[in-house]
């Protein structure tokens, strides 16, 4: 592969953050799965209510009834909010390093002084980024599945769990598309961060606010996270359209990032 040394550089630069984020997610999902009690979740819910008000509980996505299934509980307690905050850190840091940091520091001049077009470089970085996010979620899926089978054999709705993870991947493909686009547009890291970190974080916060109170429900229309509807996925409802929309948004964001990067003036 012509760009194999760039791949090596990317891996070397990012395996640290990848491992930390992956480790945190694995830890969380394993702990949450082991909190499940097939006889009923009343104790867990009572404990959680003891620590937090019920508004706060719903804000964080912890809204389940006592007879919830394992996958419902994991969807609510982990895929409801925790994963956003953990995985978005990875997205923000890595998107920044892949393009704009090379431009800001000037090392992009070296990459572009080799026989590669800007489109080749940017596409390569985009593919690396998406693939690394997919790997994060693949690891999470496999560990979650294994942890469930270990503690509660046969109890996990594996199909729903896989779809849940595919949904989260598509959501993060879209959110990372924003960060990647920002990384491609700007010459300076700080500007790229303002958009590439600011907007995805705003979406997450809007989602939390929208969950707090019925009156704020309208806010659900202003965040990408609404497209990831775990209730619909578990109930095997109409989630395919949302998946399709998220995939389309991701592709558009990534392609425009690459395209803009190939056209604009670079401050090198």
């Amino acid at each position: 592969m012509k760009l194999s040394s760039l791949l090596k550089f990317n891996i070397k630069q990012n395996y640290g953050i990848f491992t930390i984020i992956s480790g945190v997610m694995i830890l969380y999902v394993t702990v949450i799965i082991n909190m499940y009690d097939p006889k009923g979740l009343d104790e867990l819910i009572a404990l959680a209510n003891f620590k937090m008000s019920s508004e706060l509980m719903t804000a964080f996505g912890f809204n389940i009834d006592v007879n919830a299934s394992l996958v419902t509980m994991v969807a609510s307690y982990f895929y409801g909010m925790l994963i956003y905050f953990v995985l978005i850190i990875y997205v923000i840091m890595v998107s920044n390093r892949l393009i704009v940091e090379h431009v800001d520091k000037g090392s992009m001049a070296y990459l572009l002084s080799t026989p590669h077009t800007r489109i080749q470089i940017a596409s390569f970085q985009a593919i690396f980024f998406i693939a690394s996010i997919a790997l994060q979620i693949l690891i999470l899926t496999l560990v979650g599945w294994a942890a469930s089978e270990a503690s509660f054999p046969g109890l996990l709705d594996v199909n729903a769990f896989f779809m849940l993870n595919l949904g989260v991947f598509l959501l993060f493909a879209a959110l990372s598309g924003i960060s990647f686009l920002a990384s491609c547009i700007f010459n300076e890291t700080k500007n790229a961060l303002a958009l590439g970190a600011g907007l995805p974080l705003a979406f997450i916060i809007i989602d939390i606010l929208a969950n707090v109170d019925e009156k704020l429900n309208v806010l659900h229309n202003f965040t990408l996270i609404t497209l990831f509807d775990s209730d619909a996925i578990i109930a095997n409802g109409a989630y395919v359209v949302n998946f399709f929309i998220m995939a389309t948004i991701s592709i558009l964001l990534y392609i425009s990032g690459i395209w803009i990067f190939s056209k604009r003036d670079l401050s090198l």
Binding site: F9, K12, Q13, K105, G106, S107, A109, Y110, L112, S113, T114, P115, H116, T117, R118, Q120, L268
Partner: peptide, 21 residues
């Protein structure tokens, strides 16, 4: 036509921007 051009070019940038790591 950068990719084709760069096959024949050696470039030394005015600013030192090597990969620090």
């Amino acid at each position: 036509q950068t990719a084709a051009i760069m096959k024949q070019v050696g470039y030394l940038p005015g600013e030192l921007a090597l990969l620090d790591a």
